[in-house]
Design a protein around this nucleic acid. Structure first.
Lengths: 188, 188
DNA sequence: AAGATATTTCAGAAATATCTGAAAATTCAA
DNA sequence: TTGAATTTTCAGATATTTCTGAAATATCTT
């Protein structure tokens, strides 16, 4: 692996992370190399730096393209494809969230809604109540996510840090005390 | 697979989802069966319903225990172990987030911080700037997450739905217009 | 159109992960 | 302590995923 020591460590780590996030190790490593590179890189650069086959790089880049996580760019007087990642890290995070939503959350919601239409007149079993709760939680999370993506970077950063201010909004008009529902989850 | 039709569909789907979320298909299916069951179930119930071997169930439950996603309970006059999941879906989501934070985010932050200590006096390469940005984004997300878990369920639900109100807080005291930073991400 | 360069595809090899039955370990009751 | 009931472990079998080199395809230049 043809990488300087701290870069190599980062790349290996993100390879492992990628593996837990639905892409395989190599795809994670390819992404990490592109992410740390100031210049866009071509496929053979990745072959050199990661020591994997050209075809493996091609597969990995195909996967990253399908996730919209890399940008294809061209250099003057060079007909090879070069790839880069956005400079803005939040933009990358947002793309990742959006893709996972499309691939995992949306189909799950569709399934839950279809099942509710087909079996909605069944006697209310625990399982069907449970599926409905699941749908509601996912729908609420999606709503939250959709609010989030309307914000610009500065607002997101503020949201993640304000804490106290957010809490004030949440308490507006409500006498509810924290912890009042805390033990409502015992089976019964 | 000994399950009623809608339950089976749900279980199969969540098996696939589990596979994309760092646990394997079978572990996801075991969890889904427990999740949809009003009563706690013992290992042999899971063998019957999923049609997998007893040892595989044992492995799966071990994994779920390590994620703190199941509760061990006992029935009077029965020395078998029974397992259940919390009734409160948000509680489950929170456990999942907490576990993933501990397993993935925290070690990543540790690595990034150590690398910065070791190589902090290096000439400022693009890669080191990039790693620092990464650390900052992850730290901000963790802060946000830690705010989130101080809220009770009702507040979380409100937070995910208020939207407009949240936006007002964010704009407080700032003349910043949405989109004013939007194209700051071109490589330079 | 021919030839050079670059990228993609794909069948099989290599590497990983998952699953099983059998054996070992644990727990409890008598 | 014995033995029945239950759970866990683990080596090898099975299944799945990933990786590679070779061939096919696509793209550009002259």
């Amino acid at each position: 692996m043809n990488l300087s020591s701290p870069t190599r460590e980062f790349v290996l780590h993100f390879g492992e992370m990628g593996a837990r996030w639905g892409m395989n190790r190599t795809v994670g490593q390819i992404y990490a190399v592109l992410y740390l590179s100031e210049e866009p890189l071509c496929a053979d650069d990745l072959v050199d730096r990661l020591g994997i086959s050209r075809s493996n790089v091609s597969m990995g880049l195909k996967e990253l393209k399908s996730w919209k996580l890399v940008r294809l760019v061209h250099q003057p007087d060079d007909r090879r494809d070069f790839f880069s990642t956005p400079d803005d890290v939040w933009e990358i995070v947002q793309t990742l969230l959006e893709q996972r939503k499309q691939r995992e959350v949306d189909p799950t919601l569709t399934l839950l809604r279809e099942m509710q239409l087909e079996h909605g007149d069944d006697p209310e079993t625990y399982a069907s109540v449970r599926m409905e709760q699941t749908r509601e939680v996912i729908e609420a999370a999606v709503e939250g996510y959709e609010q989030l993506v309307t914000l610009d970077r500065a607002q997101i950063e503020r949201l993640l840090k304000v804490g106290g201010a957010t809490r004030k909004v949440l308490d507006f008009g409500h006498a509810m005390r924290r912890g009042s529902q805390r033990n409502a989850s015992k089976r019964g």
